[in-house]
Amino acid sequence: MAWYVGRRLLQMVPVFLGATLLIYAMVFALPGDPIQALGGDRGLNEAVAAQLRAEYNLDKPFFVQYLLYLKGILTLDFGTTFSGREVIDVMGEVFPVTFQLSIMALTFEAVLGITVGLIAGLRKGKLFDATALLVSLVVIAVPIFVIGFVLQFVVGVKLQWLPVTVGGDVTFRTLLMPAIVLGAVSFAYVLRLTRTSVAENLTADFVRTATAKGLSRSRVVNVHVLRNSLIPVVTYLGADLGALMAGAIVTEGIFNIPGVGNTLYRAIQQGQAPTVVSLVTVLVVVYIVANLFVDMLYALLDPRIRYA
């Protein structure tokens, strides 16, 4: 097991190189001159623009830019933003916020999704099941910006139960509504995956055996059905942590959260390669670790899966 984990961690090196190269290339391919855009509608004098380009290495060929960026990373220098801030400082500010938000969203979707999915699966075809499916459908079919907007307006502005926006006040209370909005679509996924797996496993041989052995229904459900049903769900959840962190652009915008999504979106729009690449690279690492964790969980959930 330890060797397996070690090997997986070692694999991060090529992934890191591949991801940074790919993302750097994509930012490089973004349309427009980021320096000229600093001048707004007025544009920038070419003399000033040329100097700024040199300062940010934007006047060099792609591979030179990329290698310079890599060289910087070796000394923990992730480059600077156009506003002259160290990218590493920016990351130190935004990641804790987004991480907290994502964990809350993940907890919400996992707890509620698995619970509702389990009950729906056990009562397949019944009223509860039908209602749960309908709710999940609405969540999927209505775009997140509409859900977020409506929830913010009703719960925040009209009822005043929760703060409308987050801003600098990053607490459980302020993040609650954004976390629910962020996790809403994934909640629908988790619900449906759990329900399907549970319904399927209910008819599996081992459940029949367990029931035939005379085990109580709750034990059959909790130990045998649920445990076996969780594999696809856990896979999904593991991958979702990273997706939530990167995918919070719309949610962070609606609730004004100073996190990764907002920063990434702005950096992409402004063509700020070091910021984009650094943020995304951290996200890749989050994916890898989360997926490693999921693979470990497989072994725990299903004794037949072994790693060497």
């Binding site: 925040g156 502005v157 005043q160 409308v164 801003g167 915008g253 609606i254 004004n256 907002n262």
Partner: peptide
């Protein structure tokens, strides 16, 4: 001065007296 990414968020804060 509070920094907002979207005007909608700021407007909703105003409506809620925040």
């Amino acid at each position: 001065l509070k920094f907002y990414e979207t005007q909608d968020a700021a407007y909703n804060d105003l409506l809620a007296d925040q």
